[in-house]
Amino acid sequence: MDSERSAVGTRDEEFLDFVAASGRYLLRTAVLLCGDPVRAEELVQATYERTYRSWRAARDGDPQAYARRVLVNLRIDGWRRTRREVLVDPGALPDRAGPDHTGAVVARNAVVQALARLPLTQRRVVVMRHLLDLTETEVARELEISVGTVKSHHARGIARLRQIFAEGELR
């Protein structure tokens, strides 16, 4: 019984350290993927819940990579079909997560807004390749798609972003 309690204690202590070390990374990744600071918090929470559930497997490898893989494969955009688009009131943002970067500033960020206009898979690939600095092979493995598919989504995503940025300059 004591050893069980001790194992749980160790697991929780490890997990606390992991959250402290990875929280900002995952929160930024979630914001880049979903474009909504509040939704990003929810996605990160769901990511940690699943990572905790499989903590033994996660800690045996690279826990941050494990959690990132969970995060990028979550149903990022599903909420838009179930909730109406919400006008986020910066004053109503919770203050538990980064009050500056993940609040109104991020919501107005031109790159975040441009990424949000990409189809989800293109957005995932572009974010993982260029903002998380993963290789094509790593992206393919984490999204469970082929390298060829990564390349084609990447090409289409970059082309679309070029168009979006150009539109912004014309305004």
Partner: peptide
């Protein structure tokens, strides 16, 4: 955007998990 100044509260996150 860069990294947020703060990440999630580790204790609250553990409790939720």
């Amino acid at each position: 955007p860069g990294y947020p100044e703060y990440g999630p509260d580790a204790g609250l996150t553990l409790a939720a998990a």
